[in-house]
Design a protein around this nucleic acid. Structure first.
Lengths: 252, 252
DNA sequence: CGCAAGTTTGACGCTGCTCAATCACTGTGG
DNA sequence: CCACAGTGATTGAGCAGCGTCAAACTTGCG
């Protein structure tokens, strides 16, 4: 059932049936949550880990002037802050951008899972490293690219991540439950300028965006004009490839 | 001897004598390297971990247009990419900004250390989480703050990190081996604008910067005007505090 | 039907970029 | 000891990308 999480982790490490069963077991009790609710708030010390089964979440923090910066999206199959227990409190909040199905996993259960299945622990650490890598790309995106490239780059990333969990249809269309204000807070721009940038992307025949449906009309050209190289997402590597490396050097 | 690394990790977890000795043992053979040399290059799969004993390093990548984005500095006591072995290749490069003393630690030795001392492993993971947290703050900095705040924020961060390894003197002065071009590539600005921003910081009585000596004239006010809150660096927490948490939930 | 939230448009101004010249400092060789 | 080159810092003029402010329009929803 829990395709997304297993799909995601299997990309990093080959999992056996027991491990897959254990991950599936996690998902037995999802419950619905509403858009706008927070999963975790900055400054708190969460007692649960959350697994997103459906819907979108986002990491953000608020500044004193009321500005908000978004620095990551959680898509279906994403597990948030497995390792937060190592730090004393959250340095950012996690909220929901859409109606969502969420599994709440008590810390103890998560730790037990990790202790019983070192390969799952390893896969979760790899996921953490990939998200750090993604964060670096966001710094590059905001720091070095202009509004047009920056927006295109974000869409390329989301398109690849959504495709990796099977949520992009054959027309390269997927659900993007973000307002222009949220895009603005992600890209370090104003919503007015996001609006104008979207118009340029549309005029260029690169995308279509109506309400929450985004279509990437020309993925290749969009990646080209926005300087996107998705290798940092590490979605293409086979589990074999990675497990070879781990056999060589890391499995204990 | 290896004060910086031990100081740094002790902040996260209380280390016993054996662990401290093991860390010190790592540092037995530092060798000098020149400014401008790379420790690790993007796309490669490094066979060593590097421990910086003296000097500054930086993480960066180059874009097709020749632009460079810097997304982190390595200060004395910093260990780079302990976990890179979990991924297949580096997604960025690490270079040196000054003459440096560097210890090269073969992967096997590092893995052995980690296996023998789980608390060291844990401390290294915490360091990774802190650096991820720092990266989020950089996104906020570049995305939401204007040039003046942005530059001040960076200086506050570096001042705190340098102080944590005992490299700030009593006048709040420390070595900042960065050209204005490097500051520009860090902050997502041009060097011309960095120059003008530095002048404003000087005029405001906030800093002094001559060649590579930076003085924070008024740390409190600088933090105030740049919206800096250093808790994300987690330099203030006592090891006791953290180890209490680990006793409760995480030690295996 | 009317409200709320989100999108779109316009006018205008400022922050920060571009291009280019000059200045300051340091290390080098004759 | 001085001329010179190279690197980095500083300055100026002009301009454009993006922000601000404000209003109009569109869409979904109770």
């Amino acid at each position: 059932m829990n395709t997304s999480l297993v799909t995601k982790l299997s990309r990093y490490i080959e999992l056996d049936e027991r491990e897959i069963a254990a991950l599936d077991h996690l998902t037995r009790n999802p419950h619905p949550m509403k858009s706008g609710e927070d999963l975790i708030q900055e400054g708190t010390n969460p007692e649960n880990v959350f697994l997103l089964m459906e819907g979108w979440g986002y990491r953000y923090s608020l500044l004193r002037n009321g500005n908000r910066q978004i620095f990551g999206y959680l898509l279906p199959g994403d597990l948030c802050d497995v390792h937060v227990f190592m730090l004393d409190k959250m340095d950012h909040s996690i909220g929901l951008l859409s109606h969502a199905m969420v599994v709440k996993i008590p810390a103890a259960e998560m730790l037990d899972l990790i202790n019983r299945f070192p390969k799952i622990e390893r896969a979760l650490w790899i996921a953490t490293l990939v998200s750090e890598s993604t964060l670096r790309q966001w710094v590059v995106n905001i720091g070095q690219r202009d509004a047009f490239e920056r927006t295109g780059h974000l869409f390329c990333e989301l398109w690849q991540r959504m495709r990796a969990v099977g949520l992009v249809n054959t027309d390269d269309q997927f659900d993007l439950p973000l307002t222009q204000i949220e895009l603005a807070d992600t890209l370090g721009m104003t919503s007015v300028h996001v609006n104008r940038t979207l118009q340029r992307l549309r005029e260029g025949g690169l995308i279509t965006l109506h309400r929450t449906r985004l279509t990437i009309l020309d993925p290749k050209r969009l990646a080209e004009v926005s300087g996107f190289d998705g290798s940092y997402l590490r979605l293409d590597q086979t589990a074999q490839h990675v497990s070879l490396r781990s056999r060589l050097s890391l499995v204990r």
